[in-house]
Write a protein that binds this DNA or RNA. Sequence first.
RNA 1: GUGGAUGUAGUCAAGUGGUUAAGACAACGGGUUGUGGCUCCGUCAUGCGUGGGUUCGAAUCCCAUCAUCCACCCCA
Length: 416
Amino acid sequence: MLTNAPRGTKDMLPSEAHKWHYIEEAYRVHCARYGFKEMRTPVFEHTELFTRGVGDTTDIVQKEMYTWTQADRSLTLRPEGTSPVVRAFVEHKLYAEPQPSKFYYDIPCFRYEKPQSGRLREFHQVGAEVFGTNNMMADSDVIALAYDFINQLGIKDIELQINSIGCPVCRENYKDALRNFLKPVYEQLCDTCKDRYERNPMRILDCKSPVDQELIKGAPTMLEYLCEECETAFTDLKKNLDAMEIQYVVNPGIVRGLDYYTKTAFEFITTSIGAQGTVCGGGRYDHLSEELGGPPIPGVGFGMGKERLLLLMEANGIKIPEPEGADAFIAVMGDAAKEFGLKLMGILRREGFAVEMDCMARNLKGQFKYADRLAVRNTIIIGEDELKAGVVAIRNMKQSEQRMVPFDQIVEALKK
RNA sequence: GUGGAUGUAGUCAAGUGGUUAAGACAACGGGUUGUGGCUCCGUCAUGCGUGGGUUCGAAUCCCAUCAUCCACCCCA
């Protein structure tokens, strides 16, 4: 037990670190290009932020939150990224800045779920949010950010699916219509769908049961029930995406699982990483701020799972560059040489070189073997003879070429 | 929460009741005291996830338990 990480968590080992650095750095640079600024919020928040924001009937709030009480305050490890950013935005009155506000983040999130491929209890996501405008320019901006990022990484087999889930008014009308449609066949629905019928009937639309898929045929879609405002918004969004040449398909089955979503809903979906194929999901949330007791501030954003992103890059055969070996390894023979080597290592490191020495008192052959394993570019050899002559031997490990270099020219020699 | 699969060294793995648990890779040491990647030699599980049980005898059979993986649900 003591030597096992808790279920659903993963250690990030040095052999994997460069992959994470790669996508994190790519995301930072990408967001800067689109005018998004980083926001960092605490790992935990007051529990109520999520019960109110995400919605207290959702699975996330009902059974997936890590919650504890300390000093009479109920606190929760954040299960998602949007509510905290909205909270911070309101708390620091950032609406006083030029609008809209555009944020990105790169965070761990926590949900108590049963782990499977692409789903962990501690998972990591990058995301982005735009606050302060109803205009579909914001929605298309956010979608473009995700779309271009995914493309830029070289990912191919993924599809952007969009939908509108309307505002609270037209959505309720639609849910009623959907229930009316399904009422005659209620008894034939699968057990989970019977459960969904009251709680979240829109979920029935993408049920995997073939029986249910038959029953659903001909059901009304959300898009037929949009009010004028939502209808116009969805049309605007599609126009913007078309203008930006972003490929998408409209899927009326896209339903977001968090209560705060309104109008725009979208997902980037793949079939090549197992059952958890939603790599990125997001949408608009026009009433979240008010729900949290803040001023009315519309917003739109997405979250993108880094673990899923890496799985997909792997599945697509995308090679992430391996880190390079050190510039130099200093191999020494004898105590005097070791002392000189230590001094030289300090000098070279201060010059900005990556330099290593053996820490296991290996003989020369062992030191070479080790240097080879580390894939260093050069090995600097120091022994009695070199010390006497005031030189070191520098061996280029890739080309197996070796030459003598005077002490005062070592730095120059390594720069080549 | 429900269902399915799997657990033998750092990794991949042979082994399905009978003497000291194959093999490969990795790691470490060495091939006569100053040169790596190739090659050769050596070392590396009183132990088969853990705890019980059956048996003269268990990695192999039974029970329990834990862990991992996959799927449902749900979501990133």
